[in-house]
Amino acid sequence: MQQKSADHLVVFDFETTGLSPDMGDRAIEIGAVLIENGKITDRFQQVMNPGIRIPLFIENLTGITNAMVKDARNNAVVMADFYEFIAGHNLVAHNASFDERFLRAEFRRIKKYFSGGIACSLLAARRIFQLAPNHQLATLAQYKNLPNDGIYHRALADAEVTAHLWLSMLDELREHHNIETLSFGFMHTLTKTPKHQLKQLYAQQQVKSAIA
């Protein structure tokens, strides 16, 4: 895991042909934003040709059609570029277990391995925004009045909203829990901490912040 602050990382999102790379599903779009010092400074977005047919359900859900990907670059080329984009950074995704499975599956196909950390903004939101109606991305965007264009199930749009959600959670921890020093490692730990142990975790981090 890269030892960096929680406001210096890449937020990413995949659109895919289905739910499981183990069942032969492939990525059809990757979107990502680079956050540096709490600001979005760069973006990455590519539709890609997975070499298999996109189901009609996915076409209707995402708007990404077989015709759109027909002349797109293939997954191997796009993922090689993405590997360079994320080099040296930790990652965040909403419902990260899904996106991580596809990230690692696509990288295995091109003999690449990602060694950084991957944190889940959904799990973090369940702990930080406990009063939200639910923790779906669209609901959280409305709940926190996050910048968005109303488009969901497109990779870059979802990554942008997730980035704003992540930064909103960092602000919440600073303002309401008096935690100034927010490392990626702390945020990753927070996503794994049971809710009844959060007060203790926050207290420990407040002491570390005061010493830092």
Rank of each mutant, 00 (worst) to 15 (best):
Ala67Leu: 09
Glu175Tyr: 15
Leu167His: 00
Ala80Met: 09
Ala157Gln: 13
Leu137Met: 08
Asn95Arg: 13
Asn66Asp: 05
Asp22Cys: 02
Glu29Met: 05
Lys199Ser: 10
Asp171Pro: 03
Gly18Asn: 11
Thr139Met: 08
Gly18Glu: 08
Gln45Met: 13
Leu146Tyr: 06
Leu167Arg: 06
Asn60Ser: 15
Lys199Cys: 00
Ile35Cys: 01
Tyr113Cys: 05
Thr65Ile: 02
Thr139Cys: 08
Val92Ala: 14
Phe14Thr: 00
Ile64Ser: 00
Arg73Tyr: 12
Val78Lys: 03
Cys120Glu: 04
Glu100Lys: 15
Lys144Phe: 10
Lys70His: 15
Gly18Ser: 10
Asn90Ser: 08
Arg109Tyr: 00
Ala138Arg: 10
Gln2Phe: 15
Arg101Gly: 01
Tyr152Met: 09
Lys144Asn: 08
Ala155Arg: 02
Glu84Asn: 13
Thr17Ala: 14
Asp81Ser: 13
Thr162Ala: 13
Trp166Val: 01
Ala27Met: 06
Arg104Glu: 10
Leu190Lys: 07
Lys4Asn: 14
Val10Arg: 02
Gln205Ile: 07
Lys39Phe: 11
Val207Lys: 14
Met79Thr: 03
Lys111Asp: 12
Lys208Pro: 01
Tyr83Ser: 12
Val69Met: 07
Gln2Arg: 14
Gln136Glu: 09
Val33His: 06
Thr193Met: 10
Leu61Lys: 09
His8Leu: 09
Ala155Glu: 01
Arg108Met: 11
Ala80Glu: 13
Tyr143Gln: 03
Glu59Tyr: 11
Thr17Val: 12
Tyr83Cys: 07
Phe85Gly: 00
Asn90Phe: 06
Gln3Val: 10
Phe85Pro: 00
His188Gly: 06
Ile179Arg: 09
Thr17Ile: 12
Asp7Thr: 12
Ala67Ser: 09
Ser20Gln: 14
Pro50Ser: 03
Glu29Val: 06
Asn134Ala: 07
Lys70Ala: 15
Asn95Cys: 12
Gly51Leu: 04
Leu140Asp: 01
Ile211Lys: 11
Gly117Asp: 04
His89Pro: 02
Leu91Cys: 11
Tyr202Ser: 07
Asp149Met: 13
Gln3Pro: 15
